[in-house]
Design a protein around this nucleic acid. Sequence first.
DNA 1: AATGAATGAGCATTCATTCAT
DNA 2: CATGAATGAATGCTCATTCAT
Lengths: 209, 209, 209, 209
Amino acid sequence: MSEHEDRQLVGTFPIMPKQERAQQKRNTLLESGRELFIKNGYEPTTAKEIATHAGVAIGTFYRYFSDKRQLLLALLYNQLDKMLPPEPSWDNTNPEQFLAGILENHYQQLEQIGLHKVLTELLIRDPELAEVLIQSRKKWHARILSGLQLAKEKGVTWTDLDMEMVAWSILVILENIPTKEKESGLKTDYAELAKLICRMIFPPKEMTS
Amino acid sequence: MSEHEDRQLVGTFPIMPKQERAQQKRNTLLESGRELFIKNGYEPTTAKEIATHAGVAIGTFYRYFSDKRQLLLALLYNQLDKMLPPEPSWDNTNPEQFLAGILENHYQQLEQIGLHKVLTELLIRDPELAEVLIQSRKKWHARILSGLQLAKEKGVTWTDLDMEMVAWSILVILENIPTKEKESGLKTDYAELAKLICRMIFPPKEMTS
Amino acid sequence: MSEHEDRQLVGTFPIMPKQERAQQKRNTLLESGRELFIKNGYEPTTAKEIATHAGVAIGTFYRYFSDKRQLLLALLYNQLDKMLPPEPSWDNTNPEQFLAGILENHYQQLEQIGLHKVLTELLIRDPELAEVLIQSRKKWHARILSGLQLAKEKGVTWTDLDMEMVAWSILVILENIPTKEKESGLKTDYAELAKLICRMIFPPKEMTS
Amino acid sequence: MSEHEDRQLVGTFPIMPKQERAQQKRNTLLESGRELFIKNGYEPTTAKEIATHAGVAIGTFYRYFSDKRQLLLALLYNQLDKMLPPEPSWDNTNPEQFLAGILENHYQQLEQIGLHKVLTELLIRDPELAEVLIQSRKKWHARILSGLQLAKEKGVTWTDLDMEMVAWSILVILENIPTKEKESGLKTDYAELAKLICRMIFPPKEMTS
DNA sequence: AATGAATGAGCATTCATTCAT
DNA sequence: CATGAATGAATGCTCATTCAT
């Protein structure tokens, strides 16, 4: 399924290799590209670098990808597929489960974010790419929102909140944790962060009871 | 020759001082660079484009800046200086003044953010540049934090909060408003956002009383 | 092993001789090359295209031909052999038989010409190739010339003509008919053309009597 | 005027240089291109070769021409402009003046033909280019034809000739003289050739009287 | 000081050719 | 024998940077 999607979106160009070997080589190139994109950024990374870093010749790169951008798109679709939006459970039993749920997925997201940051510049010039990333954000947003609305229906949240905005705020915080850590050098205290977010959402009674 | 005569007749007065003229040309280039960086991104913008867009020849560009990166740095220092961190007032009288204060500065920040987003990719490879931007964030962070701590000392906030993290969260939310608006196409409702943030910080009694 | 057994059981008969099979594959490649050369030109046609269009893998191409140029040469020798110069008959009975004879061969020549046009550029750099084509032209020239001389000896032509040049002129006209048709989109009126050529050669008395 | 035409047809791309120096350099490149195209053919000639042979760097080439094809087109328009079709005079006074007229222009045409031969292959793939060349041929054809028709009206030619075809034949003969000379190594005897052509056109009475 | 022509290193991409399977 | 994945030399083209005018 993911393979099917991949083809449609990325284009059919250089044959989805049938042999396992070739598939492996393709993956090696993808991984090589991902690492270099995250390390050096998209524009400065050359196709030749990606190939060399993957241990193959430049010609081989072009056998599997029509260009750098194709590889990037493939990478994104891969990542997006891995991040199957998990079930949006977030009961009143313990809102801090919110944290647990998020944390679990968060390290998967880290990869995605790694790319996300790299791509910021591309968004300006590459609307197709921008669309892909925006869709990804929308899925996350929808997921968080649905959890919030469930909680709201159960009457455990503030009643006057614009849950859309709450979801957006949470998303933004999540997305920026990697930056925070990179800049400060500290691991984020997720428990503390969870508390903060819960303060936004739940009235005190709910929190203490 | 004619230039010499000209001077003698008209006198030296009306001639704009050379330094000032040069300064103006420099500023034109800076502005030209800023616009193009924000419009097309850093890497894809060429020195020649910047020069042409500023109405000068490429050679002139290199008279004022050693290269594109230099111009960018100059741009950042300029911007940073403009953003003199305003006084961190945030009393209990009306916490929503927080919003006002932020909104006021926010549109100055917009410009800065414009660049900020453009630069994300550069941060990876250019530690000096990264340092500049991180310092900028730290100033903002410090400003928000100092307001929060003032409030905390007055006893109007939750007492168990890690204000560092609160400040960071607020900063992140602020920084991402432009992205939100670009993606959703909607203007942000700052009042609603302010409410949200206040929920994080102040216990209900404080809010209602 | 299985191949060995196979032979013993089935016998050697029904197996198409290897050489013949190989010969067939070789011909398929030749034909494929010819079509693509005529369609797209020599330089732009890649070895892989020829192979793919012939339904074989690129490796197979290199088993039969050392490179593109080899295939081209083979093609020319083939073509040249097919065009066994027909008997140069061209009596005074009816000079317009000239036309008939030429027309008959002309469509064979068309193919040859197809290649001929394609090759023009190559002639510049590839003396061996040029030689092949020049030889081909010389055969044609000789054939036309011999017919003319026969007629001259019979005393039916102008006596003061340089038959070498007449033959050359006719050859050139013949060779360029395809270009004429491609450009004008019209079928050539061979009868008219024949008349023209006869005017060159035969005095009026001969034409009318 | 020719400059104006040039722009319209070739495109405005790399600035028609204003300084004389630059104009000279442009011409050097054109000449360099012409020589190499004729010597080695179009496809095999690289932009770098043209630049090096002109004594400039590759970057300079691209300052003046957007690519090889542009240079070629410029070359053709130049050539075409030089060949302003001369007045089509061809009286019965002496039809062999036809020859003189043709011969005179012929060596100008030689250059054009030099390119013409080189381009044959391109015609297949480059319809715009083909159009240019076909138009050139049409001009020549029209010029020859108008001369023939003048003569016909004066009643000095055969009356039953398809002058379109006669003109075409003459054109073809003219165009191929260079090939003839290159292959045979002999100078063409234009007087003889003229005689031949006159036999096509004029009845004997006219020739002898 | 300003100009913009010239330079050439560098990147993307293609394609003839080889060779392990 | 056939295959097609892998290779890397070669080409087209861009762009930062220099320098003569």
